[in-house]
Amino acid sequence: MPEMTYREALRSTLVEEMDRDPRVLLLGEDIGVYQGTFRITEGLLERYGPRRVIDTPISELGFIGAAIGMAMLGLRPVVEVMTWNFSLPAADQILQNAAKVRYFSGGQVSVPLVIRGPNGAGVQLSAQHSQSLESFYGHFPGLRVVAPATPADARGLLRTALRAEDPVIFLEHAALYGMRGPVPEADYTVPFGQAAVVRPGRDVTVVAYSRMLHLALAAADELAQEGVECEVVDLRCLRPLDMDTVAESVRRTHRAVVVQEQWPLFGAAAEVATGIYERCFDDLDAPVERVTGEDVPAPYARNLEKLAFPDESRIAQAVRRVLQ
């Protein structure tokens, strides 16, 4: 299997799907002439021309709304948001139009739209540029919400998203763009709603996704030295949410820790923990632990920022607590 970065996985999948399907077109700020803030769309303007690679004004409400209209008329637009923080001016379009128009039209229209870009905290980007919006978007029926953690999943989920019939909130992570990994070639797809057991283990189930997956895996390595075997589950997709895979694992390990970068209240970890209680309460030997971001706007100062987000040691501590 060839190795490539998460960035290359995204870019090559876009290219393959654009070559295959003329209905696919790209919109976003500085995706063309500038080559993309994170260079995911490098060279694509030259390759496909300005009708298919549209540099937009800084007008998220307008161009995401327009992309929804394009999708309703049969195109397959892919919107790049420079980061998901900037999707909020367009939240009305995404939540009120894209997510619902199939339903309130009685099934007369589809919105095959992908909105993609980095989600979550960077390094010292402070309060307005460091949020994770997966539970915000995950709340709304009609959307698909995915958060790949590896180059292979970035490729497989993006391809599924580009061929889907529904609006897809595609959450990347800036810290992952440079990560390398094996990536299956050709028509590789990962279906929505399938979590993956990425590290088997008998003692405790650790559930994570996106960047947090890698912290969970690092914590699992550390704990393995103490003789604790973590089973790490990557959700990959938050809506639909594959609670079957999580519950199956917890039934074996009897213990669970759920990790998320976002704030604790009403977050993905709360949802997963509840799902565990609903499905396998009697199998549990300890209460489910959550590891989350702190309940504050992201601070700028490096020391405070480090306190605000989960790290490996906090995950390891949570695992030790559920094992007591």
Binding site: G69, M70, L75, N97
Partner: peptide, 23 residues
């Protein structure tokens, strides 16, 4: 392509639809 309940919210859709028709 429908009636919409959020004041102004459907206007961007129409602009994108128009683009699609030419595309």
């Amino acid at each position: 392509y429908g009636g919409y309940g959020i004041v102004g919210g459907h206007i961007p859709l129409a602009v994108g639809a128009a683009y699609a028709l030419r595309y």
